[in-house]
Simulated scan of single mutants.
Amino acid sequence: MAAVIDAAVLNVAPGALDIEKLELDAPGPEEVLVRVINAGLCHSDLHEINGTFATTPPILLGHEASGVVEAVGSNVTGLRPGDHVVTCLSVFCGRCRYCTNGQLTLCENRDSLSHDRPRPRLRNAAGVPVRPTAGIGAFAQAMVVHQNALVAIPSEMPLATASILGCAVTTGLGAVFRSARVQPGSSVAVIGTGGIGTAAIQGAKIAGAAQVVAVDIVPEKLRAASRFGATHTVNAREADAVEAVRELTRGGADFTFEAVGSSRTVEQAFAMLGPGGLATVVGMVPDTAPISIKGSELYLQEKRLQGSFMGSNQFRVDVPRYIDLYLQGRLLLDEMVSQRVTLHGINDGFKAMSSGSATRVVADVGWL
């Protein structure tokens, strides 16, 4: 039986989100109905809102969220009504060659999991289908998602804090732990200290890096980076970031992480490396922005450049581990949430993100 919910829908891009009523379909055999409690605001959402990345409205954005299971389909296993859950963007089929090789973020059948159903999950008042981003669509009072987009979490984990686990935290920590495999005693530089960059800084500290250099252009965010584990900070507006990092790390960093999403910062991340170093690109770099690096540094200095989608995560294993670190006081998550907004005030949250002042904004969508 379909339900009517409030949701924040992008009807025009570039534009703003409109609060409107949507009809939400009942869950299918492998789907779960979740009452959304909190949803994190991500820069990938902002990129679609401001038109940096093309999208096809109407679309229901939002992909990192926490909530409570309301109902499950007939083939759902491991989840039941009342469970607290978080979503993850990298929903997986579990059957393709990448999934069976443990590379869930590269799943070949991800799109089919949300499209292979008799009718669209969401429709607006005019009866027009509304596409949920990544098959999730978290900026709403409820969502119907495939069971492989969810992981159950312990009830003692605060849901507002848990909402940022499914993207920002998993991406930043995973880039360090899984994609780059940062070694104890190594030197690390992180360009961009928003939600993902802050998680990467914490990951480098937990991994035992001897030096963690945070690079940004916002003084307040650099001060916060020190609280999250950065041993040094560089304001790229006041100094040559590449030279500063190379000097601090005595010839170049062992690992760098680009968490901004521009070709210039990718080039900087590569240039900051010492011989044999590894640069990991986490930010969403537009296809129209070419990246230029020196070929000689690849074959003479053995520098490496790689991408990392969602931190190469295995989120059903990773998220419980991150929650353990949080509950032990070793992973700071409450401090990463710089602003809370309501569903009706969600556009104000995106304005804060656009200003560059926010680490992570969380929307309070519902209540327990």
Rank of each mutant, 00 (worst) to 15 (best):
1 M>S: 14
12 V>S: 12
195 G>A: 11
363 A>G: 01
125 A>S: 15
77 T>W: 03
65 A>G: 06
256 T>N: 09
128 V>M: 11
107 C>M: 05
111 D>V: 09
57 P>Q: 09
297 E>K: 11
102 G>L: 04
47 H>S: 15
226 S>M: 15
361 V>Q: 04
84 H>G: 02
252 G>I: 00
135 G>N: 09
300 L>Y: 14
307 G>R: 02
101 N>K: 14
244 A>W: 01
335 E>P: 04
321 R>K: 12
54 A>K: 13
316 R>V: 07
246 R>I: 00
311 G>D: 04
171 T>L: 08
157 M>A: 10
219 P>R: 09
64 E>F: 02
364 D>M: 03
366 G>M: 01
7 A>P: 06
340 R>K: 11
202 Q>I: 08
35 R>E: 10
12 V>N: 15
183 Q>N: 11
100 T>I: 13
262 S>Y: 05
32 V>T: 04
365 V>L: 06
308 S>G: 14
205 K>W: 09
99 C>N: 09
318 D>H: 03
227 R>D: 15
322 Y>I: 08
17 L>G: 05
257 F>P: 04
56 T>S: 14
297 E>Q: 12
137 G>V: 06
354 S>P: 03
142 A>I: 01
231 T>G: 13
148 N>Q: 15
75 N>Y: 07
39 A>S: 12
275 P>L: 06
265 T>R: 06
75 N>C: 14
121 R>G: 13
226 S>W: 02
41 L>K: 01
254 D>N: 13
12 V>Y: 08
330 R>D: 11
200 A>K: 05
236 A>I: 07
263 S>W: 01
122 L>T: 03
5 I>L: 13
36 V>I: 15
57 P>W: 06
337 V>I: 15
305 L>F: 05
319 V>G: 10
313 N>G: 05
322 Y>P: 04
26 A>L: 10
42 C>P: 06
181 R>D: 14
269 A>P: 04
197 G>T: 06
203 G>L: 07
165 L>R: 05
199 A>L: 07
327 L>N: 13
273 L>W: 01
38 N>P: 01
243 E>A: 14
74 S>Q: 14
220 E>G: 09
233 T>H: 07
140 A>Q: 00
250 R>F: 05
125 A>N: 10
157 M>Y: 03
278 L>S: 10
10 L>Y: 06
347 N>T: 04
303 K>R: 15
216 D>W: 07
200 A>R: 02
183 Q>K: 15
255 F>R: 03
186 S>A: 15
54 A>I: 03
52 T>F: 07
139 F>Y: 12
